[in-house]
């Protein structure tokens, strides 16, 4: 099955945050009220009850004055997700159409995934001692619907469909933007981390949108998962086997060479 994905075109986004509300509505997430922090962004980051946010990035352009960049931010549904790799309970799985699904019933709230994720997207929900994140509306998509965020978007900034088709749309759009006042326009999610199941059309370089330019799974996580976890633990059975061997050989040799003295060997 072809990958189904969201395409988010920032050049069409008005930051109405309808997607944020629709997400809360469909996933039955309670409101999380954070204090005002000096800009229009509702939440500092995604959290246990907020799967998606619209980020507001202000910057001062010498010619055009104060400008805004908007970015809908949520789980990127990586093709090769680090969260899935580190999860000790196999709570993560990939659907055949590309969503990274997290099963709360298996989750034990260890938060390994939060720190393995290059975007630090999986968030801890304290009241349940579990991790939560965007599901790419698995339940809706598998029932033939589009994700809540894409369905509600009034400007067409968010669309949903087969990834290869949306990639073509994105490429056309980037070409158009580049000759129409956005020379740095680019696609995000096509190649990053081996491909993301979320596509972005950005009007400027990713760093202007608070996205990692070259996202990477931390070397610490790779070292931990690829070297320590599979091999290092064998030292323990080695110690047990060594003790068992010694337990037998010491007793065989004691018979041969004569027993140890009462207080130990003499």
């Amino acid at each position: 099955m072809a990958n189904l994905t969201n395409l988010y075109d920032v050049s069409k986004c008005t930051a109405c945050r309808g997607c944020q509300v629709a997400c809360k509505d469909w996933n039955q997430l309670p409101a999380v009220i954070e204090p005002f922090k000096g800009n229009y962004q509702t939440h500092k980051d995604t959290n246990g009850d907020t799967f998606t946010i619209v980020k507001f990035m202000e910057y001062e352009d010498p010619v055009d004055g104060v400008q805004w960049n908007f970015l809908k931010y949520q789980c990127m549904h990586c093709f090769d997700p680090a969260c899935m790799k580190v999860c000790p309970r196999q709570a993560y799985s990939k659907t055949e159409w590309g969503a990274t699904f997290h099963d709360p019933d298996k989750c034990i709230g260890c938060q390994y995934c939060t720190y393995a994720c290059p975007f630090e997207v999986p968030k801890y929900r304290e009241r349940e001692d579990k991790i939560t994140k965007c599901t790419l509306c698995v339940d809706r998509v598998e029932a033939g619907l589009t994700p809540a965020c894409a369905r509600t978007c009034p400007t067409g900034a968010l669309t949903f469909g087969p990834r290869d088709e949306l990639l073509q749309v994105a490429e056309e759009r980037v070409k158009f933007l580049r000759v129409n006042g956005f020379p740095n326009a680019t696609i995000y999610g096509k190649l990053e981390l081996g491909g993301l199941n979320k596509l972005y059309v950005l009007t400027d370089t990713p760093d202007k949108f608070d996205l990692p330019v070259n996202p990477k799974v931390s070397g610490n996580t790779v070292f931990w998962q690829d070297w320590i976890q599979p091999y290092f633990g064998w030292l323990i059975p080695l110690a047990l086997a060594g003790s068992a061997t010694s337990f037998i050989t010491t007793r065989i040799l004691a018979n041969k060479h004569g027993a140890h003295g009462e207080g130990g060997h003499e």
Partner: peptide, 22 residues
Amino acid sequence: VLATFMVCMHGYLGSFHPGSGE
């Protein structure tokens, strides 16, 4: 892993290994 390795050896050497005695 290191601590458990040592604890396995220590547990054995401190008890059932004949040379450890007292």
